[in-house]
């Protein structure tokens, strides 16, 4: 049983890699596009930095957080959201797949349909996101007041990976809603994504409603803010950061369950 599961996981991982690789080869046919997307990713990520540096040049602390700490949160959240387009940009096409009945073939192949959808495209803008966010993160990590230990580093890595997994799961959930909404565009997921951007600032600045939304109902804060709070050992949030792996696993279970439910509603554009 364990061996079988392991075999299935390895097989799917290989298929996933193969699909993404094939798409990368296809995208690289247009080299200009590749660079434009990466540049767009970098420019978009710089937006928040412009905002932060403009206002923080006039106010030294925001809700008790210094400029490097703000950049740390911003960069950490940027890394986890930047991976989403790289690893699962196909999920953004789910709405149009459903609308046009383009899931038909995926449902007749011996590979998980969710996996086939996720690996249907690669968004190179994510590479730009990652480059910009990683730069911010590095800059901030060298400036924040943290006593580094090997354990520290290991936990931070685990939290970052969990944060990435969580963002992926949340993106799957937000797009899976398309099975019920039946619009050709993933409007719900786009809205959710923008809401997620709010979690790139310290949660304490928001009122109860937004804090509850970003920290619990749609816990984007686990993909950036809570891990940062844990690292910096800030106030009442420190212990929440350590829960990130648990939250990620729960959201993946939810995502897979919801996607299965959604498939049962799929009507192949009703022909």
């Amino acid at each position: 049983m364990v061996a079988e599961t392991l075999f299935a996981v390895r097989r799917n991982a290989r298929l996933y890699r193969r699909s993404l690789g094939a798409v990368v080869r296809a995208v690289l046919e247009y080299v200009a596009d590749f660079w434009i997307l990466i540049a767009a990713g970098i420019v978009t990520q710089s937006l928040g930095l412009v905002f932060l540096s403009v206002v923080m040049s006039r106010v030294p602390h925001l809700n008790g957080w210094s400029y490097p700490e703000m950049v740390l949160i911003y960069g950490l959240a940027g890394v986890s959201s930047g991976i989403v387009p790289v690893l699962s940009d196909g999920i953004w096409q789910l709405a149009s797949f459903i609308h046009n009945g383009q899931l038909d073939y995926a449902l007749t192949r011996p590979a998980p349909p969710l996996m086939q959808v996720m690996s249907a495209w690669v968004g190179f803008n994510g590479v730009g996101d990652l480059v910009a966010s990683a730069a911010m993160l590095t800059w901030a990590l060298t400036r924040v007041d943290v006593h580094w230990t090997p354990l520290n580093v290991l936990i931070l890595l685990i939290l970052m990976i969990s944060g990435i997994a969580l963002r992926l799961a949340m993106c799957v959930v937000a797009n899976t809603v398309s099975f019920w909404l039946r619009m050709p565009m993933p409007m719900f997921a786009m809205t959710a994504w923008q809401v997620g951007e709010l979690a790139r600032y310290p949660l304490g600045i928001y009122g109860f409603g937004l804090r509850f939304l970003l920290g619990a109902a749609a816990p984007f804060a686990f993909a950036g803010f809570f891990p940062a709070a844990w690292l910096l050992d800030r106030g009442g949030y420190a212990w929440l950061g350590i829960l990130t792996p648990v939250v990620a696993v729960l959201w993946w279970i939810f995502a897979v369950w919801l996607f299965r439910r959604g498939l049962r509603r799929y009507d192949s554009a009703g022909h």
């Binding site: 767009a40 710089s46 937006l47």
Partner: peptide, 12 residues
């Protein structure tokens, strides 16, 4: 060929 990048960059 790619409008995504163009529109994102413009919006930013």
């Amino acid at each position: 060929q790619n409008f995504h990048g163009v529109s994102w960059a413009r919006n930013a």
